[in-house]
C-alpha cells in the first residue's frame, strides 16, 4: 500500500514536472534557454515516471527493461543536447551574454571548418 502511494506520487509529480518543462519550452526567450527547459523534461521526468512504474511491477523483466530505457535516455539526452548546442553555435546562433571577441573566434572556426 505504501509502495502504491509512493508510486502515485512519483507518477503525478512526473506529469507535473513534464508540463512545467513544456511551459518552459514555450516561455523561455531564446534557443539556449529552451535547451535547459528541454533538459528538465529529459532528466527528472524520465526518472520520476520510470521510478513510479518500476514500483508498480516490482522486480521483473519489465522493471529491468524500464531501467534500460532510463539508462539509454540519461546517456543519450546530454549527447543530443550537446550536439544541438554545438551545431547552433557553429551556425552562428549566438547565446545571450557572449562578448564579441568569442563570437569572432567562432566565426573563424566555422569558416575554416566548412
Amino acid at each position: 500500500m505504501l509502495v502504491d502511494i509512493i508510486s502515485w506520487i512519483c507518477l503525478i509529480s512526473g506529469g507535473v514536472v513534464a508540463m512545467i518543462g513544456g511551459i518552459g519550452l514555450l516561455r523561455f526567450p531564446d534557443f539556449y534557454a529552451r535547451l535547459h527547459a528541454a533538459g528538465v523534461t529529459d532528466t527528472l521526468v524520465a526518472l520520476l515516471i520510470v521510478l513510479g512504474l518500476a514500483l508498480q511491477s516490482g522486480i521483473s523483466m519489465l522493471t529491468i527493461k524500464l531501467f534500460l530505457i532510463l539508462l539509454f535516455l540519461l546517456f543519450t539526452a546530454p549527447t543530443a543536447t550537446h550536439a544541438l548546442a554545438r551545431a547552433a553555435l557553429a551556425d552562428n546562433v549566438r547565446p545571450e551574454g557572449t562578448d564579441s571577441g568569442s563570437s569572432e573566434k567562432t566565426r573563424g572556426e566555422t569558416s575554416s571548418n566548412t
Binding site: G14, G15, A18, G21, G22, I23, L25, T41
Partner: peptide, 12 residues
Amino acid sequence: ITTLAVFATMAM
C-alpha cells in the same frame, strides 16, 4: 492522468 499530462507536454 500522468499520460494526459505527458500528452500536454508533447502538444507544447
